[in-house]
């Protein structure tokens, strides 16, 4: 099975980006490309060639869902799975993201100790 190494992370909150980067790099040993908004991510995504999208949901300019829709039509990135991270604690909402094809929805606050293990288990459990 393909090993998870490269993650593309989008979150509009500077502090959360810092924490997530430290966690993913220090604990998970992943390579992480980060963007503060959907449009920035869309511009650079193909060059990054990520294996996984990790997306915040509520962002001012372009929502996480919209970012996901646009990322997933970029040539070469059609099959990159997506995990959402959201502070919206509504099961109904998470359910609908999963139904639309998201790999998982992780609720914020995430625990840095567990985040990488969560990503790893979702990664290994994916169908593709």
């Amino acid at each position: 099975m393909e090993k998870l190494e490269k993650i593309l992370h989008v979150d509009d909150d500077d502090d959360i980006r810092t924490i997530a980067k430290m966690t993913l790099e220090l604990v998970g040993q992943y390579h992480v490309d980060q963007f503060a908004s959907g449009p920035e991510a869309l511009e650079q995504a193909q060059a990054c060639a990520p294996q996984l999208f990790l997306l915040d949901v509520m962002m001012p300019e372009m929502s996480g869902e919209e970012t996901w829709r646009r990322l997933s039509v970029l040539p070469g990135l059609e099959h990159v799975p997506t995990i959402f991270m959201t502070a919206k604690a509504e099961t109904q909402f998470s359910k609908s993201l999963i139904e639309q094809g998201a790999l998982a929805v992780i609720t914020k606050p995430f625990d840095p100790g567990e985040l990488c293990a969560q990503l790893e288990s979702v990664w290994q459990g994916r169908d593709a």
Binding site: I16, I19, M22
Partner: peptide, 14 residues
């Protein structure tokens, strides 16, 4: 409320 808590909790756990 959860967004700032995410940063606080994350920093402390690290």
């Amino acid at each position: 409320l959860r967004t700032p808590l995410t940063s606080i909790k994350g920093s402390l756990r690290l």
